[in-house]
Structure formats: structure tokens, C-alpha cells
Amino acid sequence: MNKIRKILLVGLLLHMTILGKAQDSHTSNTSRPWYLPDHAVMQFAGNIGLLSAGPGYSYARDKMQTDILYGFTPGFEINTSIHILTAKTAYHPFKVELKNGYLLEPLRLGLGISYSVGHQFYTTWPEHYPDGYYWWTTSFRLTPFLGASISRQVGSGNAAIKRVQLYSELGSHDLAVVSFLNNKKLPVGRILNLALGTKLIF
């Protein structure tokens, strides 16, 4: 259990240090103050809510992006909906400039760390459980993903929105990966899920 907490802490710190660096390598628009986001994101599915949205930052010559999202999942069969906060970092190593202002980023590789809010989700288990009774936490989940994105220039100069991006991701989450690794007969397709998102790039 302590091990898991350490991993989560490292993940969180990693996100924070990356965010910290965003301040001085603000390549997409250097004239704006560091705290203003470089883009706004809206995502459909991907284990971080039916819909999630929030601001994001771009850095490391626009090869890295970190998004801070709030996601919402309706209760469906139950009365309680699920609220999820996510920090998500993606690495885009390649850029392919296409005609008419289109830009393709064929690889998008990243990891999210999400926190589900609610009394049924635990970061530390209640005291009545013996130590290590359940080894994982239910509030934090790690969500690795792999995808691609395409964007198009829609404005330049002083325009508020300069590009519009569409991305898709094939993702999973830590507990599903653990289940997959323990079994030979669980098809990989079962643990994967698809997400679609759009970014307004400022």
C-alpha cells in the first residue's frame, strides 16, 4: 500500500515539475503571461469522465502538453454521478505539416493521473482494515494512453483561437493493465478504450 502511495506521489510530483517548467519554455506564445493556458481541452470518454474539460499548457518546443481536466460521469444505474479530476501529460515527438494549415502529430504518448471524488473512493483505507488488506487505492487511477492528433490553423496574429485540434487516444488504466498482465486468456482489446478530444489552441 505504501508502495502504491509512493508511486502516486511521484506521478503527481512529475506532473507538478513539468507544469513548473512550462513557465519558461512557453513556445506557443511567448508574449502572454505564463499562467494563461495555451489551450482549452474537451474530451469524450477515456476513463476520466463521459465529458471532461479544462485548460492545458504546452512546453518543450510544443512537444509536451499537460492538461488539467474536470470530468463528469453520470450515475446511469445508480443515483451518484462520478466527478473526476485529472492531470494528463502527453508527448508528441513528431510533427508533419500538411497543406492548408493542417498539422499532423502521428504519435501522442502519455499518462494521466486521475482522482475520483466521493466517500466510496479511498486514498487511505479506513482503520478497521488490517494494514495492506487491499493493496491499491480507489481514488487515484493512472491512465496511460497512445494516440494521434491533427490540427488546423483557424486564425493568426491577434486571433484568440489560432488552431483547432482533434485527437484520439487508445487508453487503459492501471488496474486493467494489472489484470491483463496476470492472464493469458484475457484479450488485450478488453482492457483498451477509445477517447476523442478537441483542443482550442490560443
Binding site: 476513463n47 446511469f76 462520478i82 487511477r141 477509445l194
Partner: peptide, 15 residues
């Protein structure tokens, strides 16, 4: 996506 279980809103969803 919806019909072939490729869409997951949350690991904790009850759908």
C-alpha cells in the same frame, strides 16, 4: 465505440 465496449467513462461507472 459505444456498442463494442470501447468507451469507458470511468473505471467506476455502473452502466
Amino acid at each position: 465505440f459505444n456498442s463494442c465496449e470501447l468507451v469507458e467513462y470511468s473505471p467506476y461507472q455502473v452502466k
